[in-house]
Design a protein around this nucleic acid. Structure first.
Length: 695
RNA sequence: GCCGCCGUAGCUCAGUGGUAGAGCGCACCCUUGGUAAGGGUGAGGUCACGGGUUCAAAUCCCGUCGGUGGCUCCA
């Protein structure tokens, strides 16, 4: 008979099998009401699951008043809400076939196959939500029942849902002994769904929900398979949480780099120029330029050599590198030289012929470069290198072009032309570990300066059972260990993933989430044994013989486009002074102070500070508001009083009040110093030591 | 590429068969104001583009382009 150990270590003994609900009721009536499920020996289960053996049980509860609910509670509620939604949808569209409806950290969805002549539109959300509301109001129990595999399959076949049959078959292949259903109410009487569970005790436990969006998905994630409709929703324990969540989403939207990019005029994407082709407007270009200067300074410290290479290269170069044959779908088609094109035309070559010639590689021409490495490799290969010269580090803000699928393109984070902060290191086998550490140092410096500590690190290792990898396994072992060691030096959480290495070497990736929670890979450091081989690179060793160098590809930011997109969101558009496009704006109190305002502006400008002046006919209140709206770090108000004393009255972004007056001279040098040290010194602390730093 | 939604002034959006609108911004005028929106006047639109239906289309239908949310992809 079961002895139940609760998280506090207390043990309760029962004469017969009990459920989590029984245990909760034993403790208190209120606890019973708030119990949604249980972790039984660590596994999330229904609260109604009978426990016959000794077990460790954690009750999963949710109280109406709580600010945040336990993730398990939300999972249960969301999974259950997916069922309620599916039932409601099937009431409205009986021909809809259910496929798969899991909970997510951010909500839930249900993949549904609709009749092609009766698709679902978000206009119908209101009607569906109304049905859901009534199902929840009925507070019907989630009732689990099981059938033996063969009997269950028979049932599904008689119902004729190929998707559910498939789910069942997969469950059986995965080792399931029985198939389980959940009825929302009484089996055979109420709606039910083949489902592994677990669920909340009854529909009434779903306190608040909202349907969010409609999207399409592929069956089994296979683009060649059936196209399904995915309906997204969100559910919480109570309405306040839902409201709070929706408010957060609203706030997140304001931080979206696409919204801020427009508002602050950082970049523009123009239909007439092309999809996924970014135009950096002056403000955005300033941010990028500052960042590139910063990186370049660090690269110089680390003995990198700057190079420049063109945007195109001969097709044969990319045949040697392997990019052209293997990654054709991701490239713009080759550029064909005019003579060859004319000759093909004379020969009566059709578009289809041309396409085939391109596909087969029977064509000469140039490729818009998808990567910078071949060009850098040719720089290395151009001369003979002694082991004494290594490592050679060639760096370039190299612009590459890739044919991304149209549906993927958006904002700054996924574009068709972008500039990598690229570099290729050519080194000896022994130098690999040290060079990787060096790359990560750089990442550390940059991310620290920017205050970005919210990135994840993923170390991609080879799958030892596979033979697709090039290079000596012993070297792989060393390189993989070097990657792990280097990742450790960053002091942020990192994971290693087997089979995630490139075929040519292990790698370290940096991943950051955007405001909408979508992950983006930024930088990467990759060890490469392959390209030196393909290009037959060598260096002369101390033994006087030729040796193969190892290459490291590294782009710690990934691309300027994606990185700055993420950076805009990181700062919510409020860039630190050294990065801000407009660093100081001088606000003249009235026309009488315009001359002094211009003098202040010119003084700051002469000190290298990006400064503008507002001498418009607005009142000072409006000028302050406009300046704050533009997220300018420093506003200085100047009137007759300030002119008299050669002062400026300072406002800092993030502080509601006027900080008071300081001399123009002091302000100028304090701002200058803050910019030059990239925020290590603080103009606020220098000029106003008693004022606390905002945030 | 696939599916849903969307495309109206520089920006944010209202307008759902019958004379194209608002707020912000912009220009000009008034105002000369000391710390988060002073007032007035005005300019600005081939309603993304191309076809179709209709007496009549921003509005309905088809296609294209672009945006967006997902899916798939991302060397």
């Amino acid at each position: 008979m079961p002895n139940i150990t609760l998280p506090d270590g207390s043990v309760r003994s029962y004469d017969s099998p009990v459920t989590a609900l029984d245990i909760a009721a034993d403790i208190s009536e209120g606890l019973r009401d708030s119990t949604l499920g249980a972790r039984i020996n660590g596994t999330l289960c229904d609260a109604t699951q009978p426990i016959a053996e000794d077990a460790e049980v954690t009750l999963i509860t949710a109280r109406k008043g709580e600010k945040e609910s336990h993730p398990d509670a939300l999972m249960l509620i969301r999974h259950s809400c997916a069922h309620v939604m599916a039932e409601a949808i099937q009431r409205i569209k009986p021909s809809a076939q259910l496929v798969y409806g899991p909970p997510l950290e951010t909500g839930f969805y249900y993949d549904i196959a609709f009749d092609s002549n009766s698709p679902l539109s978000s206009d119908e959300f209101e009607a569906i939500e109304k049905e859901m509301k009534s199902i929840i109001d009925e507070d019907r129990s989630f009732t689990r029942y099981e059938l033996p595999n063969d009997e269950g399959l028979q049932k599904l076949e008689s119902e004729g849902s190929k998707y559910k049959i498939d789910n069942a078959q997969r469950a059986i292949e995965g080792g399931a002994d029985t198939l389980t259903w959940y009825a929302t109410g009484t089996p055979n009487e109420h709606w039910e769904d083949l489902c592994r569970g677990p669920h909340v005790p009854s529909t009434g436990k779903i306190g608040a929900f909202k349907l969010q969006s409609i999207a399409s998905s592929y069956w089994h994630g296979d683009a060649d398979s059936d196209s399904l409709t995915r309906v997204y929703g969100i559910a919480f324990v109570h309405k306040k949480q839902l409201k709070q969540h929706l408010k957060l989403l609203e706030e997140a939207k304001k931080r979206d780099h696409r919204v801020l990019g427009k508002k602050l005029d950082l970049f523009h994407i123009d239909e007439q120029v092309g999809q996924g082709l970014l135009l950096w407007t002056p403000n955005g270009a300033t941010v990028r330029q500052e960042l590139q200067t910063f990186i370049s300074e660090e690269l110089r410290k680390q003995d990198y050599s700057q190079v420049f290479t063109p945007h195109i290269g001969k097709l044969d170069l990319y045949r040697t590198s392997g990019h052209y044959p293997y990654y054709q779908e991701s490239q713009y088609p080759p550029l064909i030289d005019p003579e060859q094109l004319g000759r093909l035309a004379d020969e009566g070559c059709s578009c289809a012929d041309l396409s085939n010639l391109m596909k087969d590689g029977d064509i000469e021409g140039y490729l818009l470069k998808p990567m910078n490495c071949p060009h850098h490799i040719r720089i290395y290969a151009n001369g003979q290198h002694s082991y004494r010269d290594l490592p050679i580090r060639l760096a370039e803000f190299g612009t590459v072009y890739r044919w991304e699928q149209s549906g993927e393109i958006g904002g700054m984070t996924r574009v068709r032309g972008f500039t990598q902060d690229d570099a290729h290191l050519f080194c000896t086998e022994e130098q690999v570990a040290g060079e990787i550490i060096g790359c990560l140092n750089l990442v550390n410096i940059i991310f620290n300066t920017l205050g970005m500590d919210n990135f994840k690190v993923r170390v991609g290792l080879r799958d030892v059972d596979s033979d697709k990898y090039v290079g000596d396994p012993a070297n792989w072992d060393k390189a993989e260990q070097a990657c792990r060691d280097a990742a450790e030096t960053l002091g942020v959480p990192w994971s290693e993933e087997q089979g995630e290495a490139a075929f040519y070497g292990p790698k370290i990736d940096f991943i950051v989430n955007d405001v909408l929670g979508r992950p983006w890979q930024l930088g990467t450091v990759q060890v490469d044994y392959n390209l030196p081989e393909r290009f037959d690179l060598s260096y002369i060793g101390s033994d006087g013989k030729h040796h193969r160098p190892v290459m490291i590809h590294r782009a710690p930011f990934g691309s300027m486009e994606r990185f700055i997109g993420v950076l805009i969101e990181h700062f919510a558009g409020a860039f630190p002074t050294w990065l801000a496009p407009e660093q100081v704006r001088v606000l003249a109190i009235s026309e009488k102070s315009n001359d002094y305002a211009h003098h202040v502006r010119n003084t700051l400008k002469a000190a290298g500070i990006r400064t503008s002046v507002d001498t418009s006919d607005e009142r000072i209140q409006a000028k302050i508001r406009n300046g704050a709206d533009a997220k300018i770090p420093w506003l200085v108000v100047v009137g007759p009083r300030d002119a008299e004393a050669s002062n400026v009255s300072v406002r800092m972004r993030g502080i509601m009040d006027d900080l008071g007056a300081v001399s123009l001279e002091q302000f100028t040098s304090a701002i200058q110093s803050e910019i030059q040290t990239r925020g290590e010194t603080s103009a606020l602390a220098t000029c106003f030591p008693d004022v606390e730093k905002p945030q």
